[in-house]
């Protein structure tokens, strides 16, 4: 995850309803890259490689068929 997304992280955090001071939001934004880094290994797993077609990556997930 690149750190340029950090301003969006702050917006999302503030919109989450989290009860936090401005300093706590600042600290969470600063911590976010490390949190993502700890999960980054999951990027190496392609569910389709083991026959599991669907995932939640919006850039790769098939468009769901809307049937009404």
């Amino acid at each position: 995850m690149d750190t340029k997304s950090s301003p969006d992280v702050r917006t999302l955090l503030e919109a989450s309803g989290a009860e936090a001071t401005p300093d706590e939001f600042d600290a969470a934004v600063a911590a976010f890259p490390a949190v993502i880094a700890s999960l980054h290994a999951l990027r190496t797993f392609d569910p389709r490689s083991v026959g599991l077609e669907w995932d939640l990556d919006p850039s790769r997930a098939p468009t769901p068929e809307i049937t009404g």
């Binding site: 600063a30 999951l42 797993f45 995932d55 939640l56």
Partner: peptide, 25 residues
């Protein structure tokens, strides 16, 4: 640790989605 805990509120969907598929696997 408190800062990391707060940061996880905006965990991206790709992480949860892949972890969920790993659980199935």
């Amino acid at each position: 640790t408190a800062a990391r805990t707060l940061a996880t509120v905006v965990l991206p969907a790709w992480a949860y989605g892949r972890a969920d598929r790993l659980r199935t696997l």
